[in-house]
C-alpha cells in the first residue's frame, strides 16, 4: 500500500515536471509574456474585487444575523448598562459605518478604475482641502469617543465608596478561585503569604483576630442583588484575571498586589434564567449539548480566568449566585468562619 502511494507520488511529480516543460516551451512562442497584464486580466480581477466586496458584506451580515444571539446577554450590573450603551453607539454609528463605507469605496474604486490600455490615469497628487477634511472628521468623532469613554471609565474605576457595600476577596491560584467574606465584624483579616499551608490556603495572618470570623468559599459564591459589591483580588502564584463577563467586570489578580473592581448586580440568577434572551440562548446551548450527548444545563453567572496562567487556564471557573438580600443572608449564615474550620 505504502509502495503504491509512493509510486503515485513519483508519477505525479514526473507528470507535473513534464507539464511544466510543455508550458515553459510554449511560452517561448507567445508574443506577450505570462507576467504581463492584459485588459482581460484587469477586467477579471476588477470584477473579482467587486464580487469579493459583495460576498464580504453578505458574510458580514450573515454573521450578525446568525451569531448576534450568541453574544453575552445585556448587562447584569448597573455600570454595565453604560458600557453596553457606549458600545452600541460606537459600533452602530462609527465602527460599522466606517467599516462598510470605506471598504465599499475601496473595492468600488478598484473595480471602477480597473486598468485598460486605452485609459490614462488623472494626475492628482494632493488637495489640502480633502486632507484637512479627513483629518478633522476623525478628530471630531474621536473627541466624542474620548469624552464619553473617559467619563464612564472614571465612574466605573473610582474607588468603592458606598458605606453599605459588601466586600468580597477573590483569591486566585493555579487553578481555582476562593472567595473570602469579612464575617460578622465586617472586616477582612490581613494576610501573609508565608503562612500559606494546607489548612491556611489563602495565607491569612493567623495573629490577626479580625480574620478569625472570615468566611472562605469555593466553587460558588453568593452576592445580593442591588448592593454595591467591592471585589478585592489577590493571587498566590502567577497573574490571573478575574473575568465576570455578564457583569462587564474584569481585573487582573497580581501576586504582590491587591487589585479592586466594584459593581452593583441588578438581576438575580433566577431573573436571568427567566429572561427571554437567556432562555433562547440556553436553548441553543442545550441543543448543541444534546448533539454531543451531554446533560442540559441552566444559566449561571460565571467567574473565569482571563489571563494565561498555566496548563489548566481553560478550566479555572467559579459559579456566582446573585440572589435577594434575604436569601443571601441565609446562605451567609450557613457558612462557617475560618477559625471554626481550622479547629475542626
Amino acid at each position: 500500500m505504502k509502495l503504491l502511494v509512493l509510486l503515485a507520488i513519483v508519477l505525479l511529480i514526473i507528470a507535473g515536471h513534464q507539464l511544466l516543460r510543455i508550458i515553459e516551451l510554449s511560452r517561448g512562442l507567445k508574443k506577450t509574456k505570462e507576467w504581463q497584464l492584459t485588459n482581460s486580466d484587469n477586467n477579471l480581477m476588477g470584477r473579482g474585487m467587486l464580487i469579493f466586496m459583495i460576498l464580504f458584506f453578505v458574510f458580514f451580515f450573515w454573521q450578525i444575523l446568525r451569531w448576534r444571539e450568541r453574544a453575552l446577554p445585556s448587562s447584569a450590573s448597573e455600570h454595565g448598562f453604560k458600557i453596553d450603551w457606549l458600545w452600541d453607539v460606537n459600533m452602530n454609528y462609527i465602527v460599522i459605518p466606517v467599516f462598510l463605507i470605506t471598504n465599499f469605496v475601496l473595492f468600488w474604486f478598484a473595480y471602477k478604475y480597473r486598468g485598460n490600455t486605452n485609459n490614462k490615469a488623472t494626475f492628482f497628487a494632493h488637495s489640502n482641502k480633502l486632507e484637512m477634511l479627513w483629518t478633522v472628521i476623525p478628530a471630531v468623532a474621536l473627541a466624542f469617543i474620548i469624552i464619553f469613554g473617559l467619563k464612564y471609565w472614571n465612574e466605573i474605576m473610582a474607588d468603592a465608596s458606598d458605606p453599605n457595600r459588601i466586600t468580597v476577596e477573590l483569591y486566585a491560584k493555579q487553578f481555582d478561585w476562593t472567595a473570602r467574606y469579612a464575617g460578622k465584624d465586617g472586616k477582612l483579616g490581613t494576610t501573609d503569604y508565608r503562612q500559606i499551608s494546607g489548612s491556611n490556603s489563602v495565607g491569612m495572618d493567623t495573629s490577626d483576630v479580625l480574620g478569625h470570623d472570615d468566611i472562605l468559599v469555593k466553587n460558588e459564591f453568593h452576592i445580593p442583588v442591588g448592593r454595591e459589591i467591592e471585589l478585592l483580588m489577590r493571587s498566590r502564584d502567577v497573574i490571573h484575571s478575574a473575568y465576570l463577563p455578564h457583569f462587564r467586570a474584569q481585573m487582573n489578580c497580581v501576586p504582590g498586589l491587591v487589585t479592586a473592581f466594584k459593581f452593583k448586580p441588578v438581576k438575580t440568577t433566577e431573573e436571568m434564567r427567566k429572561d427571554p434572551y437567556v432562555i433562547q440562548m440556553m436553548a441553543g446551548i442545550n441543543k448543541q449539548r444534546e448533539k454531543e450527548g451531554k446533560e442540559p444545563v441552566i444559566f449561571d453567572y460565571l467567574l473565569l480566568c482571563n489571563k494565561i496562567c498555566g496548563a489548566s487556564h481553560f478550566n479555572m471557573q467559579m459559579n456566582v449566585v446573585v440572589e435577594s438580600e434575604k436569601d443571601y443572608n441565609v446562605w451567609l449564615a450557613k457558612q462557617k468562619p475560618v477559625k471554626a474550620m481550622a479547629s475542626k
Binding site: 476588477g46 470605506t102 469605496v105 475601496l106 474604486f109 478604475y113 488623472t122 474621536l142
Partner: peptide, 27 residues
C-alpha cells in the same frame, strides 16, 4: 491611543484617493 487613529485614517483615505481615477493594474 485614540489620537493615533487620526494619522491612520489619513493614510487609509489617501490610499483610496490614489485609486480614484487611476488606471489600476491588477498585478
Amino acid at each position: 491611543t485614540l489620537l493615533i487613529a487620526i494619522p491612520s485614517a489619513v493614510k487609509a483615505f489617501n490610499y483610496i484617493t490614489t485609486l480614484w481615477k487611476g488606471n489600476v493594474q491588477f498585478t
